[in-house]
Amino acid sequence: MNGEEAAILELGLRALALVVLVTLCVLAVLDFACELTRRRSLGQRFQTWSRRYPVYAFGLIVVIGALLGHFFWQEATSPPPGP
């Protein structure tokens, strides 16, 4: 792998981590603010939404669970860690 490819890959990893982590961080801060000011929490709003659209909520959980399993659960085919 040359230096240019490595730089592109590093940029991709950074962008991916920033987008996912910052988005979740913003949601967590909003939920924290809701709790602090005693407003309806994100969980309550999600609950209302998922009660109204149960198929969408089920689909969302399936997608998140499938992604976690896909990324992190590969025991059977995994070689030992490299040097």
């Binding site: 230096g3 490819e5 490595a6």
Partner: peptide
């Protein structure tokens, strides 16, 4: 990312 194990598109983790 330029070092092992990322060079080969990253093998998954084991037990």
């Amino acid at each position: 990312l330029a070092t092992l194990p990322c060079q080969n598109n990253s093998d998954p983790l084991g037990r």
